[in-house]
């Protein structure tokens, strides 16, 4: 398995993705968050069509208050993953609406630790 991982500051995420992303070649898998206590580690996963066991990962860290940049300008289908992030981690994602999964009466930001 080949993993090509780049670590960037949060505000550079969109630029980094824009530099290499091309819909003909790349497949966007998802954006994933892991709670590290006080901040969330975000990972954008990509893979290339036709290539075996290859991943490209863009990693960034965001605190609970940071505004996470959206990549829906580049990848229109990314909205659903971003909304999920906003819902389950309670992050402030650009342009995301809350309430994709959670109801007002369910616990908010359930995937945060502690």
């Amino acid at each position: 398995m080949v993993v090509d991982e780049v670590k960037v500051p949060l505000r550079d995420v969109r630029r980094t993705i824009k530099e290499f992303y091309n819909p003909q070649e790349w497949h966007f898998i998802t954006v994933n968050g892991v709670d590290l206590g006080g901040k969330v580690e975000l990972k954008w996963f990509f893979t290339r069509y036709g290539e075996e066991e290859y991943f490209k990962v863009v990693t960034a860290e965001a605190s609970y208050e940071d505004e996470v940049p959206t990549i829906t300008y580049l990848i229109p289908s990314a909205w659903i993953s971003e909304w999920e992030l906003a819902d389950l981690f309670g992050l402030n994602v650009e342009g995301a609406k809350k309430g994709l999964f959670l109801d007002p009466e369910s616990p908010q930001a359930p995937l945060r630790r502690g």
Partner: peptide
């Protein structure tokens, strides 16, 4: 299909060659 990152049978029916069975061992 490519722009919206479609997966599975809908993607393959559109002519996009993507299948994790071939791309992941």
């Amino acid at each position: 299909a490519k722009e919206m990152n479609v997966v599975g049978p809908p993607a393959r029916a559109a002519g996009l060659k993507t299948d994790a069975r071939a791309e992941f061992n």
